[in-house]
Design a binder for these strands. Structure first.
Lengths: 169, 169
DNA sequence: TCCATATAGTAAGTATACTGTCAATCATGA
DNA sequence: TCATGATTGACAGTATACTTACTATATGGA
């Protein structure tokens, strides 16, 4: 038998996981930007720098798979990083379509220097919880993101990204 | 003594709570939009509709406090809801600055009809976890968002929002 | 070789999210 | 009452995030 629709209250919003994920993401960005204000880097730009540092000579499409960010969005992010002279784009010899990404000296220095601030930011996000709860939340979240990988518009493909090494350039 | 900086790996990104919150938020939006595609409503627009339904005659500033969304952003959201004829803006008699928000008949109908899809979406987000883990994650997340409320740019002020009732109009 | 298909990067369009700023309006206190 | 400061909604500007479409280029098979 069909159940009567329950009256709509704000709990329909406040207790919904989607709402909590959104709020927490906004809080996380806010904390990150605050801790890292001296470096003028957003969380997305930071992640891109790390990935380019870890995969020198990666191209934009693979970069998007490695950090699971949208390809179109990433184009703009790359532009901003380039205009700040933190990265360089060089044409690939093998494939005229792709542009290979490398950190500049300045980009490598910024990445090195920002790390302590990033770690402070990441700590602050979970700070209000008891240590055991921090571990539990992180474990559950890691698990959930992994299990939901295919549900995301841009699934994480960490493996694919390694193929390019040695092939391009 | 100062510790040597550890080499930067992708784990600096993958295991960071901020990164996991971002990924999970994107997955959540993706699932919501998919389940609710028949209604052409975004998660933010849905939350606004619920809040306006629950607080008829609320103004934009209080609405922003009730759902903890940025005031500037909310202006655009309200515009879109109005252009879809889901809500109405009426001038307040008491205060010439404010515009009071109400659902239209159409808005109330959409809100009633979309609820099952929203609930399916919210379920799907946590589906991959075991039931006990879903409860645990939700509890920790609720706690963390609440404890971090003041760290967010737009803290939730559910109480404030109730004051307006009976005063305005 | 040539054609169909696939891919890389780009661009346009929409929707959040936040920063500032501004004019109009309101509330308060001298 | 009048000057001051606060509030409301609007706007401009920047940065994600995603969709669709487009060009240039690669690649595979007939």
């Amino acid at each position: 038998m069909p159940s009567k629709p329950s009256p709509i209250t704000m709990d329909a919003v406040y207790t919904a996981p989607g709402y909590l994920f959104r709020r927490m993401q906004q809080i996380a960005v806010s904390i990150f930007v605050e801790e890292c204000s001296a470096f003028d880097l957003t969380p997305v730009q930071y992640a891109a720098l790390v990935a380019i540092h870890t995969h020198p000579g990666i191209d934009a499409t693979r970069l998007s798979a490695v950090i699971a960010f949208d390809r179109s969005t990433l184009g703009n992010v790359i532009e901003r990083l380039e205009s700040k002279a933190l990265i360089e784009r060089k044409p690939s010899r093998g494939d005229k379509r792709v542009k290979l990404l490398h950190l500049t000296k300045s980009g490598a220095a910024v990445l090195r220097d920002i790390m302590p601030s990033v770690e402070r930011a990441q700590s602050r996000m979970l700070q209000p919880l008891k240590p055991a709860d921090r571990k539990a939340l992180l474990a559950l979240l890691t698990q959930l993101v992994d299990l939901n990988n295919e549900a995301s518009r841009v699934p994480l493909r960490a493996e694919d990204a390694l193929e390019h090494l040695g092939k391009a350039g």
